[in-house]
Simulated scan of single mutants.
Amino acid sequence: MKLALCTDVLAGLSFPAMLDKVKSYGITGVEMTAGGWSPCPHVNTAALLASVQERDGFRAELARRDMNIVALNCSGNPLAPGELGEKYTHSSYQTLALAGKLGVKKIVMMSGLPGGGPEDRIPNWITSTVSWPDYMPGVIDYQWNAVAIPWWRKFAHEARQQGVEQIALEAFPGQLVYNPSTLLRLRHAVGDIIGINLDPSHLMVMGADPIAAVRKLEGAIFHVHGKDARIERGLAEVDGLLDYQPVTATRTRSWNYVAVGCGKDLQWWKEFFSVLRMSGYDGDVALEMEDLTMSVEAGLQTSIEALNATLSR
């Protein structure tokens, strides 16, 4: 396995300065956002698509530092109703086109989330048992069979046309694909170009065991995010893990994203990577630093030290 970095955490730096900073950490692989929710601080997708010279200069900055793009990220909600879904659908296809022109073989996305029916104007995430109220089975059927599967089949076809080999979906709360079972459902319906971006932090905060998930997902793990979470003592025991407070409310939330090693200890991370390797994954682990309890630099240094001490190389 090889350590990479999700570069949005260094959004305040220019593209060349960001690459220099990443290289100073001893990291040569980058995951950069090219669409979706992110402002895409280091990838001007429209300009790169429009100009061979722009693309040549972009590649030259990477090459002179002996660095490479491990994935382009385009996490948004292309399945949302109306203009929002259209916006993120366009962004997703633009990212595919750019990946094709840059020779990037893997893109990281989220599945998206439809409305609950054709007349809905906002996405609807069903997390309760569908046995009651009785309207929910119809919602699930609509979201999967009328919206998600047709959209992803069309997108997967275009991905193959662009030379993209892997679409790594990040299982995330508030998305139709939010755990291993829903990922495998979409993979079964669309094809083996669909796999998971295994971010253990999201499974942790839903009460799942990422190490057990690795075993279920064997053969379908395309990408891994190095990201930790901490269940906050004295808070989760009272209100549980379902928490819609903003992530900035770190003091009162029942869980928080934290630097690697500040949630699970290093022994846990060693086992996680060992089981990943045993299950056949030997690819990139992209550090995604979203700890709001410390400075960016402290979070990066803490996480890099922890990952370097635990990765199965």
Rank of each mutant, 00 (worst) to 15 (best):
C6K: 06
I69G: 11
V190C: 08
G299W: 09
L307R: 01
A168G: 06
E297Y: 06
R185N: 09
V296N: 02
P137E: 08
S181F: 11
Q175I: 03
I149F: 15
L72M: 05
G195P: 09
G103P: 10
P39G: 09
Q166R: 14
I231R: 02
F155M: 14
A34W: 08
V214F: 07
V104K: 04
I107D: 04
M32C: 14
K101S: 05
G138C: 02
K105F: 07
A220P: 11
Q94V: 01
G195L: 05
G100P: 07
L113C: 14
E232K: 13
S75W: 00
V70Q: 11
I149L: 10
G280F: 09
A286M: 10
S201I: 04
H90R: 14
A71E: 10
S24L: 03
F222T: 02
R230K: 15
R59L: 15
H202Q: 08
T302N: 12
S91Y: 02
K216T: 15
P173G: 10
T129Q: 08
W151F: 15
F172E: 15
R121S: 14
G12A: 05
S111R: 02
P150G: 11
A168H: 05
H42V: 03
N77W: 08
D20I: 02
I149K: 09
I211R: 03
L198R: 01
A46M: 00
I193S: 10
A99G: 06
G115N: 12
L241E: 06
Y244P: 11
S92C: 13
I126V: 15
F172P: 01
I167Q: 04
C262A: 15
L62F: 13
H225S: 11
R215I: 10
Q94Y: 01
E54K: 11
A208C: 01
P118V: 03
S91L: 11
E218K: 13
Y178S: 13
N197S: 10
V108K: 03
W132M: 11
G82V: 04
V30W: 06
V104F: 11
Q267M: 04
C262K: 15
T293W: 02
N44K: 12
Q161M: 15
G103N: 06
D8S: 07
V247K: 04
Q301H: 04
V52R: 14
A236C: 12
L5K: 02
C262R: 15
L198S: 09
T45E: 11
R59C: 08
V177R: 07
W269L: 03
L72N: 02
G116M: 07
I304V: 15
E305I: 10
T252Q: 12
K216P: 00
N197K: 01
V260M: 07
S295R: 01
V296I: 13
A220K: 03
E271M: 03
T127S: 14
A50N: 12
V205P: 04
K227N: 08
F172C: 10
S131N: 14
V258T: 09
M109Q: 10
S111A: 15
K87S: 05
P16Q: 08
L62W: 05
G219T: 06
G117L: 00
D199S: 09
W125I: 00
L102K: 04
D291W: 04
I107G: 09
Y281F: 14
R64G: 01
E170M: 10
M206H: 00
P200C: 08
S274H: 10
T45R: 14
I221M: 08
V205Y: 12
E83Q: 11
F58Q: 02
N68L: 04
G76W: 05
T252R: 14
